[in-house]
């Protein structure tokens, strides 16, 4: 298979380092704008839920963070697979950069879920399939991060942690289908791909805005983190030394 030239260029560390630095703010500031819009929509515009009153508004931070927790893992696993198959260093760098961000959003999904569960279910925690599989996701992220930290050699760390990331993929369908396969305390999905959503328009748009905002935020943070990974991996490369001689090129 012949890959286009721009793809090869993207795979070249100096190009990636520069482009990622240019693109990141263009993802970050729209993310902040959408976060403010979605928060306003979720807290002010959306009507109270007929069952949960204003308590349902936690959905606007819980669902986007839960979505990111699995989406980031998918990105991490895909990047790991590409890194293993094509021996592409940049792909491993993406996987390594995604892990801490994924762990943070998994933590956020668990805690906002617990805080939502208290008034609605009467408990912060239940050993329920959805909750338990999400907790396991957090442990997989933390295992991945500490496995990387256990190697001094970047190549070995890349390969070992990539295998762990791929094994952990089995957890993703378990999280997703847990509310369907087993009787769960957790409610089913509010938005289904092929169905009309089960919530009203004024409740829905802030949720979609927040999901988009979280996704852009992740992309912006990921790009900056991959830049760090690339810089560390290329420590002795000529282009890194060149960049250091012209510091204005590096800023932000």
């Amino acid at each position: 298979m012949k890959l286009p030239v721009w793809f090869h260029k993207l795979g070249s560390p100096p190009h990636f380092f520069r482009l990622a630095g240019l693109f990141s703010p263009w993802l970050f500031w729209p993310a902040i704008g959408l976060l403010l819009l979605g928060t306003y929509g979720g807290l002010v515009v959306a009507p109270p839920d007929y069952q949960q009153g204003d308590g349902f508004r936690i959905i606007y931070v819980h669902v986007p963070s839960a979505y990111l927790s699995t989406m980031i893992y998918a990105v991490m696993a895909l990047a790991s697979a590409i890194g293993l198959i094509w021996r592409m260093k940049l792909a491993h760098a993406v996987a390594a950069a995604a892990a801490p961000v994924g762990a943070w959003f998994t933590f956020l999904a668990l805690v906002t879920g617990a805080v939502w569960g208290k008034p609605m279910w009467g408990t912060y925690w239940e050993w329920d399939p959805r909750l338990t599989s999400e907790l396991i996701l957090l442990f997989i992220y933390l295992g991945y991060i500490s496995l990387r930290g256990a190697f001094d050699d970047a190549d070995k760390a890349d390969r070992a942690s990539a295998v762990l990331a791929l094994v952990g993929v089995v957890n993703l369908p378990i999280i997703h289908y847990s509310v369907i396969w087993w009787s769960s305390i957790h409610q089913g999905p509010s938005i289904k791909k092929m169905d009309a959503p089960s919530i009203s328009g004024d409740m829905l748009w802030p949720l979609l805005v927040m999901i988009l905002a979280f996704t852009l935020f992740f992309a912006a943070v990921l790009l900056q983190r991959v830049r760090s990974e690339v810089l560390d991996r290329e420590r002795n490369a000529r282009w890194v030394l060149d960049i250091m001689d012209t510091p204005d090129k590096v800023s932000s």
Binding site: G53, G55, I58
Partner: peptide
């Protein structure tokens, strides 16, 4: 927040 202030 309709009594849900601490949670929200």
């Amino acid at each position: 927040m309709g009594g849900y202030a601490p949670y929200v």
